[in-house]
Design a protein around this nucleic acid. Structure first.
Lengths: 166, 166
DNA sequence: CTTGCTTTTGCAACAATATAACATAATACT
DNA sequence: AGTATTATGTTATATTGTTGCAAAAGCAAG
């Protein structure tokens, strides 16, 4: 599959139509799972929908709360298992520095996950920057190191919040 | 202060003299704290020593165990506070992807913390790679994003373990 | 379509990581 | 020495994530 345009571009539309990007993400997920013979069950779909609806990094226990609001009692393991599945399918990323989850902006594409995270408004941009990827690969190569997974999470201020503080 | 040689180079000496690098790290830490008018107390020094003695990422509760072996009952907060101090002074890094801590290889130098972590032997190399730093800065600039902190943690196989698996 | 197999979910307990709040002790300053 | 500041002790609790087993749902062969 070729690299598609990101589902959500970097720090552009703060007040865009969330419903649209949620349903687009769900459609894409359906297609990807169908193609791979994976089962996007009601629960998994629901969790993915909640992740996208928030449109910001959400903690597992946050999702748990939201699920409970809709479905009564739900146990942590339920959420974590759904998130595990979604991560395996590359539909959701875990942000190690926040212990939180976010919908993947490049579903179906091979990429490593690079994030700019605003510490003021929690808005996040996912990148797939060739320069960064290459720099990491080159540096690993130089040490004889074989990369299996990279965590790149950059904290700071997004353009909007930067202005607000100037 | 100019960038000094790293205390521990990348994946070179697997069976070097740990005692030496531990004491070197402690000496350096003493000097840095003295220079800054910060207090490297017995406890903080002990925690730093344990971090270095392990020479691999160690969890806070691992350190807690070791402290208890020497000093009887110790509470989590004690360790976390010491680690907080050591991080503030740039003597220790927290690895978000592992919930673990490691002695800083470039104490006293301004740097961002970039790590290659072997998932087989847990050996770790800290980098301060200009290419990576620049790529991150450039990408952030392009999005109008102001960086305050970066997390770069690369998991994979170190040269030794890669051979072992070939 | 039903029997048997696999995958998913429910459920309960628990493990691991981290913080808060307040009291006591040590250190530094004058 | 007396006072202010910083560090540590202590207890409790919050947050995040996992394990193990049983029930249910989906799937596939006959």
């Amino acid at each position: 599959m070729e690299q598609p345009a990101p589902v959500s571009p970097a720090f552009i539309a703060t007040d865009h139509n969330h419903d649209h990007c949620v349903s687009l993400a769900l459609q894409t997920a359906e297609a990807i799972c169908r193609e791979r013979g994976q089962r996007l069950t009601t629960l998994r779909r629901k969790v993915l929908e909640l992740v996208w609806a928030n449109h910001r990094p959400v903690g597992a226990y946050g999702l748990l709360e939201m699920l409970r609001d809709e479905s009564g009692q739900v146990a942590p393991a339920t959420v974590y298992r759904a998130l595990d599945f979604l991560q395996e399918q590359g539909l959701v990323h875990r942000l190690a520095s926040l212990n939180a989850f976010i919908g993947c902006a490049f579903p179906g594409a091979a990429h490593t996950g690079q994030f700019l995270i605003c510490t003021s408004c929690q808005e996040l941009a996912e990148l797939d920057d060739r320069q960064i990827t290459e720099a990491l690969r080159a540096s690993a190569d130089a040490s004889g190191f074989t990369i299996s997974h990279t965590t790149v999470e950059v904290l700071g201020l997004c353009p909007h919040c930067r202005k607000g503080r100037a």
